[in-house]
Design a protein around this nucleic acid. Structure first.
Lengths: 325, 325
DNA sequence: ATGAAAGCGCTAACAT
DNA sequence: ATGTTAGCGCTTTCAT
C-alpha cells in the first residue's frame, strides 16, 4: 500500500499538504488539491487507520459486547441499530459475542482496551438488571440497566407496553383478558404485568396476570395452564402472551383442544418475532419492541455521552396488527 | 494508559526487554521477566494495538462482510463460527452488515482497507453464486461461491443432504414422498432436488420434486399445492419441505384440512430453525445445516490460505430427529 | 540475555 | 497557502 509520502513525492508537494487534502482541510489551493486528489484516485490510496489512531490518540472505535444477543433473531436489531449509528458518525463498531462473567468477556474487554476503544455498549438478551461497576470509558447498557443507575441505559418501556396493549384490548371490546408469562423474561414480565393491572384498574376491572416463576420450559404454560383456563368458569376472550413463542404454543394447544384462534378466542403477544408472527394462522397481533431504535440511541449515547447523571431511557414499542385480535 | 517506556523506567530495564516479556520471547532472564510482569499486572497495562499494527506491518484483522446475513437467525451461526475461529488464532474479526452492490459494501471495503485487513470472509444468506473479481487480499466466500471458482468457498453440500434425507425416508418405510420447495433458495433447491431424484432412482423409484420458481410468497405452496396433493390419487406419506418455515406452513394448512402430522402424514425439512423446529407439535425432524462449521472453516482458510487453486468446499449436515418423521 | 537506534505512517504544533 | 519538525508506542534490526 502506498503512503502519503509517496503521494507527496509524485505531486511534488509536502507530506502535510497531502494530509490536508485527505482530511478535507479547506486551507489548500484548489489546483494543488485537484492534483493530489487525482493521484489518490489513480493509485487507490486509503489512509492507514492504525497510524491515524496512534498519532491522533483517538481510536474511533466503539465496542459492542453482546451477551448472547446475537443468537436471538429479534435482538439482532439491537446490533443493526448500533452499527448504523456508529457508521453515521464515522466510528468503527467492534462486536464481541460474550458470555456474561465468562472468559470471553474478559478477553473481549482486553481487546477493547488494546484497541483503545472510546466507549462500550453492553447489550443483554433480555431486559434485566446487570451489575456493572465504574469503568475507564463510558459504558452504555442496552436492554439492561445497572441497579444503581451508574451507567446510561436504554430499555423497553415494558410497563407502558403492558398498559397500552391492555387498553387496546378493552377498546376493542374484550373484557376477560388473561396474561400468561414465563419467568425467563422476569423484569419485562413484572413490568408488563403491572401495566396490565393498572390499565385494568383505570377501566374499573380487577385483572390478575398469570406469571409462572420457575416455569421456564417451553410448553409448560400453554399445555398445563391454557386448557384449564379455557374450560373454566370464566373463560377468557383474549389471551395475552408474554412472547410470540408462547403465543405460538398457545395456538397449537388451543387447536388440539378444538379452539380456533380468531373465532373462539383472540391472542396477542410481545416480540413481533418474524417469520413466526406473520405465518401463524391467523397472523399474530403483537407488540414490536423498539430494538433498532434502542441500539441506535445507545450507540449515539456512547459516542457522545450527554452531560449529567446517567439516565435509564425507556423506549416504547408499537402494536403490529394482524388478525389474531 | 501507560506505555512500555514507563514500565521499563519502573523496572529499571530497557524498552526492548519489556517488549520481549510482553511478546513472550523466551530470551529473558526469569527474574527480570517476573519483575516486569508484576509491574504490568499492577498497573493493568495493555499493549497499544494500533502501534503494534503499524510497526509490525500486520493488522491481525480479518473482515467479515455479511450480505444481510445477520438478519436471519440460523445464519448467525456463520458469524459465531467465524468469530470463534478468529479468536482461536488471536485475530480480530471486523464485522460489517452490507447490502450487496450497495453503498454499504463500498464503505465497508474502504474501512477494511484502512485497517489493512489481512483477509475477508464474504457471507451470503442463501447458498448462491456471487461474482467476485480478483482482490488484493484473500477473499473466502461463505454460503456462496464464485461461478469461476476464483476464490475459496464453503457451502453446504445440498446435493448430499437431499440424497441422504431421501434415503433415510425410504429406510423408514415411506414410499410416496413429496418434495416441496420455494424459489428463494434456488441453488439449494436445485441441488437438493437432484439428490432427491438420484436417491430415489438408486432405490428404483421415479421421484418428481415440486419446486415452484417464482413462488416466493410464504403460504403459496402450502396453501395452494398441499391440499391438492393430499386429496389427490397418490396421496403422499411424507412431505419434505425445503425449509422449516415452509414446514410450519404445512403444519397449519394440513391441520386446517383435518390432517394430523405424525398420524396422517409425516413431515421433514431443512434448517433446524429454532425455536420453531422444536416447538411444532409434533417436533419437526429437520436437516441442520453446518453453518457454525462453515463459518469456522472459512475463517481458518482466510487466516491461513491453503496453497494451490481455490476449492469449493462442501460441508454436510445432520438430521435432527424429532417426532414428525 | 539485554540494549540502542531507527522508523512504521500519520498528524499536531509550529514555522514561513 | 504550504512546509518542517517532532513524535504517537511499538517492534525490527543490529550491537553488545
Amino acid at each position: 500500500m502506498t503512503t502519503q509520502r509517496e503521494i507527496a513525492r509524485r505531486a511534488k508537494t509536502s507530506l502535510k499538504t497531502v494530509s490536508r487534502v485527505i482530511n478535507r482541510d479547506p486551507l489548500v489551493n484548489a489546483k494543488t488539491r485537484a492534483r493530489i486528489e487525482a493521484i489518490i484516485a489513480e493509485i487507490g490510496y486509503e489512509p492507514h487507520q492504525a497510524a491515524r489512531m496512534m498519532r491522533s490518540q483517538r481510536s474511533g472505535i466503539i465496542g459492542f459486547l453482546a451477551d448472547e444477543v446475537a443468537t436471538t433473531s429479534s435482538s439482532i436489531e439491537l446490533i443493526r441499530g448500533a452499527q448504523d449509528a456508529a457508521w453515521a458518525t464515522r466510528k468503527q463498531m467492534m462486536l464481541f459475542n460474550i458470555e456474561r462473567g465468562g472468559e470471553s468477556e474478559k478477553l473481549a474487554e482486553a481487546q477493547l482496551t488494546a484497541f483503545r476503544a472510546e466507549a462500550v455498549v453492553y447489550a443483554a438478551r433480555y431486559h434485566q438488571p446487570i451489575e456493572i461497576g465504574p469503568k475507564a470509558v463510558p459504558y452504555v447498557l442496552l436492554n439492561c440497566f445497572d441497579p444503581e443507575d451508574r451507567h446510561t441505559a436504554f430499555v423497553p418501556d415494558d410497563y407502558q407496553l403492558g398498559h397500552d396493549v391492555t387498553k387496546a384490548m378493552f377498546a376493542r371490546g374484550y373484557r376477560r383478558p388473561v396474561f400468561l408469562n414465563l419467568h425467563g423474561v422476569f423484569v419485562a414480565a413484572q413490568l408488563r404485568a403491572r401495566g396490565f393491572i393498572d390499565a385494568g384498574k383505570s377501566l374499573g376491572f380487577d385483572l390478575v396476570p398469570h406469571v409462572y416463576p420457575g416455569a421456564d420450559e417451553h410448553g409448560f404454560i400453554a399445555n398445563r395452564v391454557l386448557p384449564g383456563l379455557m374450560a373454566g368458569p370464566n373463560r377468557p376472550d383474549i389471551i395475552l402472551c408474554g412472547q410470540d413463542i408462547l403465543a405460538m404454543e398457545a395456538y397449537f394447544v388451543l387447536a388440539e383442544h378444538g379452539y380456533v384462534v380468531g373465532r373462539d378466542v383472540a391472542v396477542a403477544s410481545f416480540d413481533n418475532l418474524e417469520p413466526i408472527a406473520s405465518l401463524l394462522h391467523p397472523g399474530l397481533s403483537t407488540i414490536e419492541l423498539p430494538y433498532y431504535e434502542m441500539g441506535y440511541a445507545a450507540m449515539q449515547a456512547a459516542i457522545d455521552p450527554p452531560p449529567g447523571k446517567p439516565i435509564r431511557h425507556k423506549l416504547t414499542g408499537r402494536l403490529v396488527e394482524r388478525a389474531s385480535f
